[in-house]
Design a protein around this nucleic acid. Structure first.
Length: 253
DNA sequence: AAGATCGACAACCGCAGGGAT
DNA sequence: TATCCCTGCGGTTGTCGATCT
């Protein structure tokens, strides 16, 4: 019998996602949600498998994602949680709002592991690494500043270095990106930034600042030319702007 | 300047869990 | 209970930019 493959692999695209694919996926999910990931690529007009779409969405396109390097407090929390939970990245990620398991896993493998080893701590066991010269001594090195996950959570929520307020919400005025009205009627084919997407200026209600994804789905926004645009279009622009700009990384540092 | 190497992160793969029938 | 299907998870690989030689 055997399992059915997650998708018909023939003719499906693999590798890095293009801006166009991102746009299609975001547009589809914002307008329809994702009833069933397997059906998403077909309905969204993507040559990807559902799994790939889900991963792209959850790890990169989701609106509630926090971007940039993990803060000191977040890193400490990850170490603490790892000591208690092991490689259960999704569980660890659930304690860090706006962070994905993949992101934490990558950060662990590339940064934290090295850091701990440098400190003489085994990243697997969180115990001091025994050296050949020095016979192992029961030195108590507490890699975790927290006594429990609850305590860590409490710290995280109270820490001035990190709070959920830092999660970059889709602020209305952030979605409104450079919109060159003068070029809207004239051709911009000679522009050095051919990928630049023109989105309409939108007036956002203050209460919308706290709207979730579900609230945005299917929402039509008025534009200056009277042509209603979906909120998803504005959202797509926001995401791509955010992704294309590296500056935010440095702002966080 | 060009090739080699390294590091960071995005994406893929295979498996397991759980709900539906 | 058995089977199917979908989703989530964790390990691994691939890609690309930065740095080194």
């Amino acid at each position: 019998m055997g399992r059915q493959p997650c998708c018909d692999k023939v003719g499906l695209k693999k590798g890095p996602w293009t801006a166009e694919e991102d746009k299609k996926l975001i547009n589809f999910i914002l307008n329809n949600g994702h009833c069933c990931w397997r059906a998403v690529p077909k309905l969204a007009g993507l040559l990807r498998c559902g799994k790939s779409c889900r991963l792209r969405w959850t790890n990169y396109l989701r609106p509630d994602l926090k971007r940039g390097l993990l803060s000191e407090s977040e890193e400490k929390l990850v170490i603490d949680l790892h000591a208690q939970l092991g490689n259960r990245w999704s569980k660890i990620a659930s304690h860090l709002p706006g962070r994905t398991d993949n992101e934490i896993k990558n950060h662990w493998n590339t940064h934290i592991k090295k850091k701990l080893r440098k400190m003489g701590i085994d990243p697997l066991t969180h115990e001091p690494i025994p050296t050949m010269e020095e016979p192992q001594q029961p030195v108590e090195i507490n890699t975790s500043p927290f006594e429990s996950i609850e305590a860590a959570d409490q710290f995280l929520n109270k820490s001035p270095a990190f709070c959920t307020d830092e999660v970059p919400m889709i602020l209305p005025d952030e979605i409104i990106v450079a919109y060159d009205e003068s070029s809207s009627s004239s051709s911009s084919s000679t522009s050095s930034k051919p990928e630049e997407i023109k989105v309409p200026c939108i007036e956002w209600m203050e209460s919308m600042y706290f709207w979730g994804l579900d609230d945005l789905i299917g929402l039509e926004l008025p534009t200056e030319d009277g042509d209603p645009k979906l909120a998803s279009d504005a959202y797509i622009q926001y995401q791509r702007e955010t992704m294309d700009q590296e500056s935010w990384k440095f702002e966080l540092m």
